[in-house]
Design a protein around this nucleic acid. Sequence first.
DNA 1: CTAAAGGTTCAGAAATTTCTGAAACTTTAG
DNA 2: CTAAAGTTTCAGAAATTTCTGAACCTTTAG
Lengths: 177, 177
Amino acid sequence: MLESFVFHFGEMGSRWGFNRTVGQIYALLVITEEPISANEIGECLNISRGNVSMGLKELSSWQLVHTLHKPGDRKDYYHTNGSIWDMANRVFEERRKREIDPTLSLLRDILLDNPGNDAEKYAQVRIDEIYRLLENITQWAQSLQSLSPEKLDTLMKLGSGVGKVLDIKDKLLQKQQ
Amino acid sequence: MLESFVFHFGEMGSRWGFNRTVGQIYALLVITEEPISANEIGECLNISRGNVSMGLKELSSWQLVHTLHKPGDRKDYYHTNGSIWDMANRVFEERRKREIDPTLSLLRDILLDNPGNDAEKYAQVRIDEIYRLLENITQWAQSLQSLSPEKLDTLMKLGSGVGKVLDIKDKLLQKQQ
DNA sequence: CTAAAGGTTCAGAAATTTCTGAAACTTTAG
DNA sequence: CTAAAGTTTCAGAAATTTCTGAACCTTTAG
């Protein structure tokens, strides 16, 4: 049963920016309370020692694992740190840095060019749309990250009810004018 | 310049659930105003006719392209439809169906199992966290999709200022009590 | 200082994904 | 009905990604 979780997260991993093994290692660490050694990970998942090492390196670069040392033992022990929400945030943040930011910078460059003909003019209009959308979404996502967890929770629970709250806000502003 | 856009989106494509060619075809269609034929796409991107056909099939399954016919011409012509925002929505919706929903269903199954020991008990607690997070986020995203574009725009522009609006809402509710 | 225990690296092997192009299929003009 | 114009399919080739394991590096107990 739990193996199916680890296996499934391996497949999912590739959607989130890392490969199957990395996904499996991560899933294993998430559901294991005690920190475990690299050897144990390898045995558990049936992968080579080298592959475990590379996987853990990748997860560290995403800041998703912690290393521990037990006194009188020189092995490294690994575990995941933070709540699931922290981890989701970290993946989001990291992907923004690695993917969205370079894309935005490329689009910006393209938009600075003078269009040579109508086709290029049209293309720039479309690219500008994409640029604005991407920028809006990432800025918004970042501002949400700075919200306190409780407020974020309230907001999520509101769901589309947030529309009504916005209406109230508008009315208040009108009265003040 | 525009080639770099097409090329970059090819790379990006793999992050969004489809392969390089599909990403390039899509990028090309987005920045091309006039509908173009499958042959033109192949020439433009230097890919085989068969590959173009498969790519377009994939894009259709994501509902991201439209087929057109010119009178007196039996070729198919392709173009993208809808605003960039529509497209982002469609990709989100489609990925939810293909990835998130199966994941949620797997997690639900695991949570129904009776834990056999402490390790399994711990694993279930963690999996439950993941389950609730995923469900929260997708439900929220869906309720946002049902918001009118203007409201969504207001909300995005508010950014973290949405926190203050929530405070106002709370105060109003207290007065009413 | 030495050797044992553990970690990392990376060249090439294995697995997986993507692409090609020829054959098969579909549609329609004549 | 036939043939030309066009599209789709899919087996195998090519490209890409991932994985292994032996060589190498690092740390520390003695």
